[in-house]
Design a binder for these strands. Sequence first.
DNA 1: CCTTTTTTCTTGACATCGTCTAAACCGATA
DNA 2: TATCGGTTTAGACGATGTCAAGAAAAAAGG
Lengths: 132, 132
Amino acid sequence: MKSAISILRQCGIQPTPQRIAVVESVLISTAHPTADEILVFARKKCPTVSRATVYNTLNLLVEKRLIGMQAIREGAVVFDPNIQKHHHFIDEDTGDIYDIPWDQFEVRGRKAFEDFEILDVQVIMRGKRRKK
Amino acid sequence: MKSAISILRQCGIQPTPQRIAVVESVLISTAHPTADEILVFARKKCPTVSRATVYNTLNLLVEKRLIGMQAIREGAVVFDPNIQKHHHFIDEDTGDIYDIPWDQFEVRGRKAFEDFEILDVQVIMRGKRRKK
DNA sequence: CCTTTTTTCTTGACATCGTCTAAACCGATA
DNA sequence: TATCGGTTTAGACGATGTCAAGAAAAAAGG
């Protein structure tokens, strides 16, 4: 995997210890962390990093399309290191979010939308993970 | 349209002036109001109603499946008087939410989910309304 | 009617999320 | 050293949403 520094440079963002900590925290994650979860994680690498910097950096990364931002859960936006098109399943018991491969669904009839310019489509499922 | 009182009675919720004001505010709406927007509206009918009561009543209505609750926008949950299955389009410029008829999309491949019990599915589109 | 009990409502406190601002803090350059 | 940009920080702020304690209102029972 590419280093955080080169990722930041490539996007024209000046690498700093704080930003590197945030990038490493969010890109390593396989889950869908909130900003405050990323803050906790980033402080393990850079103990002095502030909340504002984490928010600023995350917003920068979203702008540069290095990560996604999903408003699909109550309470807080979550960030998504997976920028491939995909769908989401949300476990209503735990709040956990699972990625669902893009081709798992067929979305049809999109042509009917003349009045709207569709920039993003996704299927959102909610339910419970079966106890097994 | 049914009166708010009979709707509440039918669900075993004691009708009170406060609850009636909330029910009328949210059921009359054709949009997707937030709790605070409903508070403002309800106060026109019942000026002393408090924030806590609005939140409590809305949660009651959601429990009884009289309205829907959608966590699809940043900042605040929105409530949805339309409880038929449907999809949503979100205008990223204005934050407006439009209902999309259920049969506008075909969602396939659902059988693949053995590990999950799917309680709700919807397609969420984001984009811009075309200026015309 | 008049109590008692239960339900509901309100107020205010509280926690969380996310943004903003002013000041401090670099690091490079002259 | 002095200065100049960009970056970070701490804290204030507003908005969302929940909670607890007491006030108020409604129901129940005599």
